[in-house]
Amino acid sequence: MRIALILAVATATAAALPIPGWAQAKAAARKPPPPAAAPKAEEKDAATLEFEKFRAEMEDSNPAELFEAKGEELWKARRGPRNVSLAESCDLGLGVGVVKGAYVQTPRHYPDAGAVMDAERRIVWCMVEKQGFNFDDIAKRPFASDTHTPDITSLVTYVAAQSKNMKLAVPLDDPKVREAYEIGKEIAAYRAGPYDFSCNTCHGADGKRIRMQALPNISTPQGALRGVQGWPGYRMTGGVMLTHQWRMGDCFRQQRFPQPKYASDAVAYLLTYLIGTANGLEYKGPGIKR
């Protein structure tokens, strides 16, 4: 047998691929603009199209898979002071140990916890209540940085991947979940802080942008889906895996608010509103972000 190596491509996730794409897009964007005309609502600019092409290529080899694999190991391993696995103790809503389809059916109300929880909050609850981990230890550094990815991030990525290509189905017919949805909707509308911003200031109307970044209108199912799709996501800037909880916090940061507490009601309710609004639409699993 003669094996010939015909092509070897080293695709650097942040460096090699995007530069040509972006350079082209930037060059295209330098063309003089039509006078005083802002781009139309759903018109996609050159940069967006280039990025979508790049993203499609990256989705085929998303580094999120690395965290998914790590998360699967963590889910099945006996860990914590009580030396039990999440697989044998954690009920995400569909029965103990069931992960298939669980992510798209959160947030939901968990009677054993007496609270509405998104998937990340629920896994944290299981780590604390079933495995015996200390909540404050988890909440101290809940999100990935350039040097550290917490276990909870990998676990969420694994659980989310087990709902790939499934329809979002937040159980809004549960009155407690419906109430969380309505409160989340109020949180999204609440204007305060030095700039009088609410979530809806940026995400309450169609066809708006901040700089080049298109802003999904989270009051519509399609817009809400855009706020759900790709989370948890691998962010190429810095190469970090980040969860939907992190994304909500970063919105509040840009809103000039203080920080929402990790795994809190406020974030769970906001996620109930966001994901619930996208109910019925298809979730594609962990994604890749700029």
């Binding site: 047998m1 094996i3 015909i6 070897a8 695709t11 996730t13 942040a14 580094p63 690395l66 190469g239």
Partner: peptide
């Protein structure tokens, strides 16, 4: 190695990104 035969022996450096992806095609496998 593919099927017991060495097909790539490469050196990489700091220009490769975090969590890198390598893709290649092998004839004859």
């Amino acid at each position: 190695e593919v099927g017991g035969k060495l097909v790539i022996q490469g050196q990489t450096g700091t220009s490769v990104s975090r969590n890198p992806v390598f893709a290649f095609k092998v004839k004859g496998a």
